[in-house]
Simulated assay, not measured.
Amino acid sequence: MNRRRVREHIFTLLFQKEFAQPDEEQERIDLYFEQHSHIKEEDKKYILHELQGISEHLEPIDQLISSYSKGWKIERMSKVDLAIFRLAIYEMYYRDDIPKSVAINEAIELAKKYSSDEAPGFINGVLGKISSSVEAVAYEE
């Protein structure tokens, strides 16, 4: 499965997480993979690894979103856009093998496919500011 399709699965699981109780998370993930039985084991492992990484870094990721999405509180933000932001920022700052420009472009493509007409521009603007910010460098580890 290509990286874009795998990214869509990660995005979908991040989106679903917004509507589930924390104690239901593993059950939700298991059900997702049952419903998508075509996903190869190596892709499943990658998806789970990425979800774990995003969860581990959720606080600083959300801080970046809050800091750079002027006028938009995370609580009021579209759950689709929030999932896209979380995935993109994780890829930008916690994955050395994914160029920031690729993470941003992929986020825009997800927004075009799954969000509102305004979302691609909004996501591009916020991620562009984050990418070029000196402050954001503090999250690189």
Results as ranks from 00 to 15, higher is better:
5 R>Q: 11
7 R>L: 05
12 T>H: 04
12 T>N: 04
13 L>G: 08
14 L>S: 06
15 F>D: 03
20 A>Y: 12
20 A>G: 04
20 A>Q: 12
24 E>Y: 05
30 D>Y: 01
32 Y>S: 03
33 F>I: 02
34 E>A: 05
37 S>G: 05
37 S>C: 03
39 I>R: 09
39 I>V: 10
41 E>C: 03
42 E>A: 14
42 E>C: 06
44 K>Q: 11
45 K>S: 08
48 L>K: 10
51 L>K: 11
53 G>I: 04
54 I>M: 03
60 P>Y: 13
61 I>A: 04
63 Q>K: 15
66 S>T: 13
66 S>P: 00
66 S>V: 06
67 S>K: 15
68 Y>G: 02
69 S>C: 03
71 G>F: 02
73 K>M: 06
77 M>P: 05
77 M>F: 00
77 M>E: 07
78 S>D: 06
87 L>F: 14
88 A>C: 09
96 D>V: 10
96 D>C: 10
98 I>A: 02
104 I>Q: 11
105 N>P: 00
105 N>Q: 14
106 E>P: 00
108 I>H: 03
110 L>G: 03
111 A>D: 07
114 Y>F: 09
114 Y>N: 07
116 S>C: 07
116 S>T: 15
118 E>V: 12
119 A>L: 05
120 P>G: 05
122 F>V: 13
124 N>T: 10
125 G>I: 00
129 K>M: 02
130 I>K: 05
130 I>A: 07
131 S>R: 15
132 S>C: 01
132 S>R: 12
134 V>I: 14
136 A>L: 06
138 A>P: 02
138 A>E: 15
